[in-house]
Design a protein around this nucleic acid. Structure first.
Lengths: 339, 339
DNA sequence: CTGAAAGCGCTTACAG
DNA sequence: CTGAAAGCGCTTACAG
């Protein structure tokens, strides 16, 4: 029974069965631990499988069972911030649950999103995790899927509790004594951004003055990359800037610096999502972060349940996962200038 | 011959054949365009396939042909900058070539990298694209694979020409009149970083003074997140900071601002990789970018050739793709202070 | 406890 | 030009 490791050419169940003089059914059972196989046979089969470098054929298994063991992940733009974090967490959770992840980038386009979904389905995925492009409703997808967006999105499966995250910001700024605050958003059509802004507003002390600066709107009027006029805001009493994303917080911080306003001494800046460079800049950025591992876990669990048909245990629909505040140096007490 | 669209339950070749009274072989041939099928039959078969919502079974096809049509992408850390760009470009190129991309995150760990590779192989990928963790040599992988790292990495398949990219930086700084330059690196063990630094040095004007500041080393001595002492460098004559990554350039820029040194008036800052926020900050960051689409294309082509066994056309081994300079506001002429 | 057999859906020689 | 048949490697009832 000499095994030539050099001829490690794709041994299959049949080869193992032949080498051991048993049937493929028995080998299959022994390896999967399902059917009843005599205790003495199991280790022998296992060893032989190892020795022959057996790697089960996913294709055959998939064809037979009707399950590929692969999930599709549809992202609006893999390369833009936050989505990589999602991808990483999903990949991790999926692996733990025994699934592989096939990715598809919808490039921010609704048509491409539909195409991406179809491509994935044609590749035989068992289910889909979709982070929809803003304003998209997922049309009829006839395989199990989970949506990660915002609690305000119809059909959402799980997401961070953006409103609660906003409340964290509002409370933090209030506690620091800020009474005139400029919120920085990008696009008023975004559910996520509106939730965050709503949350901030909800927990700001009653006497606080709030104003929202929408970047896309500003740029439409003043040109792409134009200054946001933050120095003027400071001169008219704003002491804190709360952005709906660290990207905008970074923009705000560099603009303030550039216009000779010190952060946090003269103005506080706070962001969202805790992007990786937040701790690298000076001063480091205070931010609110999502619990990605937990969100990914819920999404994967939800899909796995749907795939396995466990409709008894109702899927956690529209689950809201709490966000947490990461305090760094970019926030300080409101300067008590006379106004 | 009424087709009930509601019973759109996974029609297969057999269903189509039965509905049309032909054989599955003919349907298969008509749909794939391979075998000779009478011209009149082809459109009828196509229509019926559409009407019945036929989606070919990847599993069956893979089992029969021995090819899954899926490639694995192994990344050291999906969530850290640059890798998402790579993932996006690879996904795109793969799609164009008819492949799906299964992702695996090696979490920066050599053991996990090996595990990730094996997991992917077990899932039946036809080939692998590997962005190795620093200092890793890919052991024996017995399916086709391509490595994206640096030209100095043994076994590299394709990468940006980091040295040439560095040369772009050196030439730019020289042209602006900078004569005392601090290079900012992270880890001297990185081939990519060393290539970039070598390139910068090679094209700096002869009389330039150069010094390298290694961040990991600095932090080991002074603590994580400690200031890099850039203001002192400026005081002793440094007029430009060239970082091997935009991340470090951002760190430098914010530290300079924070210590009241104006960029670019008093000090120039330049980075690498053109990360997305480079154009968002003030002043916008000059950087050197890789041609990801081209790199991805070469990697995918190389793998596809190996898979299809076209060893006649030799794969582009260790291909170097030129980088390009993206000029923004963070670089200015060297200030002519007296020294 | 073990084996023979069917069948998942496809592609590909091979006859006709 | 078209069809009958084999077979990819596995799992799963079903006999024994």
């Amino acid at each position: 029974m000499s095994v030539t490791p050099s001829s490690k050419q794709a041994a299959n169940l049949g080869d193992i069965a032949r080498a051991l003089g048993v049937s493929v059914a028995t080998v299959s059972n022994a390896l999967s631990g399902k059917g009843r196989v005599s205790a003495s046979l199991v280790p022998r089969i296992r060893e032989m499988a190892d020795a022959m470098g057996y790697v089960p054929s996913q294709a055959a298994r998939a064809l037979r069972t009707g399950k590929s063991g692969v999930l599709g992940l549809v992202l609006p733009d893999i390369a833009s911030p936050l989505f990589p974090q999602i991808a990483q967490a999903i990949e991790r959770a999926a692996n733990t649950a025994g699934y592989g992840i096939l990715i598809a980038d919808s490039r921010g386009d609704v048509t491409l999103q539909t195409e991406a979904i179809n491509r994935l389905i044609e590749r035989g995925v068992d289910g889909l995790i979709i982070v929809p492009r803003r304003g998209t409703r997922i049309a009829s997808v006839d395989i199990p899927f989970a949506v990660i967006d915002s609690p305000s999105t119809p059909g959402n499966t799980v997401s961070a509790d953006h409103w609660q995250g906003g409340a964290l910001v509002g409370a933090h700024l209030s506690a620091l004594g800020h009474r005139k605050i400029t919120l920085i958003g990008n696009n008023p059509a975004s559910n996520v951004q509106n939730d965050r802004i709503g949350g901030i507003r909800s927990s700001l002390s009653g006497k606080a003055e709030v104003e929202v600066l929408w970047i896309e709107r500003h740029e439409a009027e003043h040109g792409t990359g134009s200054l946001l006029g933050l120095a003027e805001k400071v001169k008219t009493g704003t002491t804190a800037f709360a952005a709906v994303s660290d990207v905008h917080a970074l923009r705000a911080m560099t603009e303030l610096h550039r216009t000779n306003i010190r952060v946090p001494e003269e103005a506080t800046v706070i962001g969202f999502d805790d992007l990786f460079w937040g701790s690298v800049i000076t001063p480091a950025l205070t931010s609110v972060r999502m619990d990605m591992p937990r969100i990914a876990d819920i999404a994967i669990t939800s899909i796995a349940e749907k795939i396995d048909g466990k409709r008894d245990k109702p899927t956690d629909d529209n689950a809201r996962v709490p966000m947490s505040l990461v305090i760094r140096q970019s926030c300080g007490p409101a300067p008590t200038t006379a106004f």
